[in-house]
Design a protein around this nucleic acid. Structure first.
Lengths: 149, 149
DNA sequence: TTTACTGCAAAGGGTTTGCATGAGG
DNA sequence: CCTCATGCAAACCCTTTGCAGTAAA
């Protein structure tokens, strides 16, 4: 796991440090599309002296290495470890962002169709559906703090 | 045209001013997904004293009135007048963002499928395909200034 | 040993806010 | 007339940058 990761980074001429491995794992092992602040809070438990500058720098490296994708929202960016075609469900109430369990194939087909018909070389994609998650629809307004776009 | 627009704004209890009409038209009549700066430069020709604060304020109103959609990118946000399900083609070289001519129906179907299977009430969507447009692929590197995500 | 990453601090820049003036309804 | 929008300026905050010390290779 860390072996693969380290190899992939070195392959880009990037130096592998414990901090970078921790940041990479914090994003790659997540499913909640964490923000920089969230990554910071998680990694700081292991590296109390780490600063945001290191987080930003490392996230840039990871993105350029093709390991993660930045998802800019209105307030802050979030980070996506799943680069395969899929749909993100974004709750505008609580701010949660989760990968949909359905629609992967449909996104792949759509991508192929558009790439062919529009003659547009597609590198990657972002498919966001904005709405109200089950929990919030049920009235369980939890933490409207992180509310995204 | 302006009649409809004015009515729609008043219907939200929003005061209609010449500045707001100009900003609304600048976005609604555009197809290039302009940024705040671009809207500013276009509207300033008619209202030289207008400031960015008014642009931001009006764009908020237009978004809350359901007339436009903010598209956050890494550097700046752009604004989308087309709220119907569709695909945006984002060129990572020149930064152009255009609506794809294909795939509308596929996005509608995908939306319905996910809404049903995931039990997620979808309000609106954002479908971006990132890649290289025909012009840039042909080597005509034009203005790599606005390069988006 | 050489190179480049970390941590700290300061700067940058898009966006937001507060307030007095002025215009819409 | 009363309310709210405009314009101006300052504040905000996320993000970037510069630099000295330090760790990877």
């Amino acid at each position: 796991m860390q072996q693969q990761l380290a190899a992939r980074l070195r392959q880009w001429g990037v130096r592998v440090t414990p901090q970078r491995l921790a940041i990479a794992e914090a994003v790659l092992n997540s499913s909640d599309h964490p923000s920089v602040q969230q990554i910071y809070e998680r990694v700081r438990q292991h590296f109390p002296s780490m600063t945001l500058a290191t987080i930003y720098s490392t996230l840039d490296v990871l993105e350029q290495s093709g390991l993660i994708q930045e998802l800019p929202f209105q307030k802050v960016s979030r980070y996506e470890p799943n680069l395969d075609p899929h749909v993100n469900l974004v709750c505008v109430q609580c701010g949660d962002v989760v990968d949909a369990q359905q629609g992967h194939q449909a996104v792949v087909r759509l991508k192929n169709q558009v790439a062919r018909d529009a003659n547009f070389e597609i590198g990657w994609q972002r498919v966001d559906f904005y709405g109200c998650c089950r929990r919030c629809a049920a009235g369980q307004a939890s933490q409207p703090a992180t509310a995204s776009q």
